[in-house]
């Protein structure tokens, strides 16, 4: 069931998305995600969290059991808005009998891009993804990385407002990944909205404005990277000397002691100063004081422990 909510200014506004597959396998259990216009949004989560199902629901490849919300201000599946969306699925395959240029022309025609525009855009995009010299080669001769580049070009042929990319850097070498990151940032600067689904957290960290962490069919965390990391800062203080002499005092302050490293949880300069005072009082040598921001990986692992039904194992929930 897909219902319409009131018109919003979000590029993607998904509300209460459920998907139950046959044999009562719950892939999504009420997902709410909002993506602002002109931002790069990252969707991450462990395998089997429901990320690809969610992307496929957005692109009408999978039918939701229940879904409210809009994409580009219209209900999910609105044909006009699908024409304004570019999509690169995970592990995509193009017909091997087509050349790179023919792939772009064929899929753009299906996206209702006028012929004249197709002829103009295809060489430009092939140039942009570094595939110009392979444009007349059959796709079945392409490597995985070349297919990925072509797939990205295909997703951009209709000059979309919203670009949905599922594992866009899969199969690319480091230079290719850097090129894709640069392309994404360039597209954002042009005002495009980009919805990224990737398991490469470091990639997401480098380009995303906001992220959502999907665990076991539910959104565990959602926000900007700084919002997600501000409450999870810790400070690690390493020292040398007799640990036993300070153990009692440090525990009183509420500091975690691991060998010769004291960890102060959260953002608390006062606590850090108190720890330094205790260490100095006992004549211990302080080697380093390092504030430590959690990476996306730390947040993901932490989020997995907070979702009902997430027992640390990946996979859709069967009820």
């Amino acid at each position: 069931m897909v219902a319409v909510t009131e018109m919003t200014n979000w590029a993607v506004d998904l509300i209460d998305v459920h998907k139950t597959y046959p044999r009562n396998i719950q892939a999504l259990r009420g997902v709410n995600i909002q993506v602002g216009r002109g931002e790069i949004f990252g969707l991450l989560g462990p395998n089997g969290a429901g990320k690809t199902t969610l992307v496929k629901i957005m692109m009408t490849v999978v039918r939701p059991t229940r879904a409210l919300g809009t994409i580009l201000g219209r209900p999910i599946g609105h044909r006009g808005k699908l024409a304004a969306t570019g999509y690169l699925p995970e592990n995509h395959r193009f017909p091997g009998y087509l050349t790179g240029a023919q792939v772009l022309d064929h899929y753009a025609a299906l996206a209702k891009v006028p012929r004249a525009l197709r002829r103009k855009r295809a060489p430009e995009l092939l140039e942009q993804v570094g595939m110009t010299k392979w444009s007349d080669t059959r796709v079945d001769k392409y490597s995985k990385g070349m297919l990925q580049r072509l797939g990205i070009a295909q997703a951009l042929m209709n000059d979309p407002e919203l670009i949905v990319l599922d594992e866009p850097t899969d199969g690319l070498d480091p230079v290719g990944r850097r090129d894709v990151r640069a392309l994404l940032l360039n597209l954002r600067d042009q005002g495009k909205t980009i919805f990224l689904n990737s398991h490469l957290l470091s990639e997401l960290e480098m380009v995303c404005d906001r992220v959502a962490i999907l665990v076991n069919g539910l959104v565990a965390r959602q926000g900007t990277l700084s919002e997600l990391t501000e409450h999870t800062v810790e400070t690690r203080i390493t020292f040398c000397g007799d640990t036993a002499s300070v153990e009692g005092d440090l525990k009183k302050i509420g500091v975690k002691l691991d060998g010769s490293m004291a960890t102060v949880g959260g953002y608390s300069p006062e606590k850090v100063n108190k720890v330094i005072d205790v260490l100095r009082k006992e004549g211990l040598t302080i080697e380093s004081v390092q504030p430590h921001r959690f990476s996306l990986e730390d947040i993901l692992v932490e989020a997995m422990g907070h979702v009902p039904g997430a027992d640390g194992r990946a996979g859709a929930k069967q009820v």
Binding site: T60, V61, T85, Y107, L110
Partner: peptide
């Protein structure tokens, strides 16, 4: 086949 049908179904048709 997976990887083929997704691109087609995402088109406004």
């Amino acid at each position: 086949e997976r990887g083929v049908v997704e691109v087609l179904l995402s088109k406004p048709m």
